[in-house]
Design a protein around this nucleic acid. Sequence first.
DNA 1: TTTTCAATGCGTAAATTTTACACAAAGAAA
DNA 2: TTTCTTTGTGTAAAATTTACGCATTGAAAA
Lengths: 254, 254
Amino acid sequence: MEHNLKEFFDKALKEVSLDCTVFGFHEGELKVLLLRWKGTDGWSLPGGHILLDESADDAANRILTQRTGLSDVYLQQFHTFGNVNRYIYHPEKELLEKLEATFGKGFFDGIIFRRVVSIGYFALVEFDQVQPTPDWFTDECRWWSLAEVPNLLFDHNEMIERALKALRQRARNYPIGYNLLPEKFTMPELQRLYETILDRQFDRRNFQKLIMSYDILERLDEKRIGAANKSPYLYRFVKEKYDEAGATGISFSM
Amino acid sequence: MEHNLKEFFDKALKEVSLDCTVFGFHEGELKVLLLRWKGTDGWSLPGGHILLDESADDAANRILTQRTGLSDVYLQQFHTFGNVNRYIYHPEKELLEKLEATFGKGFFDGIIFRRVVSIGYFALVEFDQVQPTPDWFTDECRWWSLAEVPNLLFDHNEMIERALKALRQRARNYPIGYNLLPEKFTMPELQRLYETILDRQFDRRNFQKLIMSYDILERLDEKRIGAANKSPYLYRFVKEKYDEAGATGISFSM
DNA sequence: TTTTCAATGCGTAAATTTTACACAAAGAAA
DNA sequence: TTTCTTTGTGTAAAATTTACGCATTGAAAA
C-alpha cells in the first residue's frame, strides 16, 4: 500500500504531516512509544501524512490505530511545528545513506527531505492494551521511559517536551486518568499517576479528599490483595461524571 | 509582487496557510481586524502563506506587520485547522464568480480552492497604533466589535471563537495588558480590560489588590484628569517584571 | 461660589480553601 | 505470633479569597 512514495503522495498532503507523542503509564513511570527507522539506529515519534479526504484529527486517529491496535484513544492537538530547519537537527546525511541502502538509491529524492510542517498531537493510552506495531518505514516500535528517551530524529525531542507541557496543563485543568489507567485502580495508583505527570508529591489524605470532591470516582467493594500491607480499595471512574468534568474543567489545585 | 499566483506559490507552501485573529481593545470592547475581499462583501481574517525560507512564526509576523504597520506584536499560535471541509462553509460558488469578475476567469483554478490546512494565531495589539491595511486580495481592512462580527468566509468564525478561548486561557494564567493598553493607563481601565476578556465583573478593591500583588505595575505621580469624578492615578507595566511573570505564569484567581 | 454626584483610594472582617499532621487497622512476611 | 509497611479516616492551623464601608476628589450643576 505505501510501498510507492509517489503514489502515496498523490493521495495525501505533502507539505503537512503529523506526529504523535503516545503516553502510557507503567510501573510508576510515564512512557512514550518510539519507532526505529529501518536499517538505522535513529528513533522517531509515530507520525504520518494526512490523506486528501481526511481531517487532521482523523489522520491522527488512523495513524494511532495502526501503531497501537487501539481505536478511540484520547488525542489532543497541542502545537504545530513550522520551523524552516526542523529537518536538520540531526546528521541527516548519514541517516539518508543508511535508508537508501535499505530502500534503494534516490528513493527519497525531493519527497521527504524538504521542509514539512508537522501538527503535534499527544495521545493517552492504557499501557497494557497497546500492541506496538512498526510501520513500513521502521522495523521496531517500543515503549521508552520518558527519562531514557535518546536523541531523536528531527525535532522530535522538542515535540515530546512540548507534549509533556501540554499534558501537564491538561492535568491541572481537567480530570485525567481514564485513558491511562486500567478500569479498576487504587487511590495510591491514581496518586502516583498525578505525581508522575505533575512531577511533585502530594499528601495522600489531601489528595484523596480533593479527588473525591470532584465526584468522578466510585469506590468498589473490592480490594487489591497480594501486597504485604493493608489492602487498598479499588476505584473506577464514573464515565458520565468524568466526561462532565472534562467538559466543564476542574482546577487541580494542590 | 503577489500579482501572479503561480509565481508566488513557487516561493511558498501551498497546502499550509495561517490566519491571525488580531485583538484590539477600544472603548471598553474587544475588536478584531477583518478584511473584505475585492469586489465582494465577504469578510475574512488576515492570513497568508508561509514562504519557503520562513518559519510559521516568521510568516505570521510578516503578515501581521503588513496588515497593521506594527512590528513585534504579541503573537501566539493556538490551534491548527485541518478539517476536510473547511473551505465549503459558505457559498463559495458565488464568491468565486465575483472574484473571477475582478481577477479574471480561471485565475484561481486548482490553486486556492483546495483543502488547505491553516495554522491559527492570535495577536494582541494596541488599538490606536494600528494602520489597518488591505492586501492585494482585499480592498478594505477595518476593526469590528467582537459582538458584531458577521458571518465570515471559510471557518473563520470558528477560528475567532477558538482564539477568544485561547486568549481567555492566556489571561487566566499569565499577565495580560502590556500589548493591548497604551503605555499609561488607569486601574479602572485595566480592570475593564480584564472584565471584557474574561466576561465577568470584579470588585474594584479586590481587583486592585490582586493585580498589585503580582508586582508588575508601577504607579506614576500622574492622574488622568477630565472626567466628572475623582482623578485616578496612572499606572505603567514594569516590562522586566511583566516578562518575568509572563515566563513563570501567574494564576489570576478571582 | 457652593453644592451635588459619581467614581476613586484605602482597609478590615468573614468565609472559604488549602495545608499540615497523628493514630488505628489490615495483611503479608518473618 | 510478631513485625513491618501501607492504608483509611478526621481535625486544627494557615493562607487565600470574598464581601463590604467610608472618606476623598474633581467636574458639573445650581
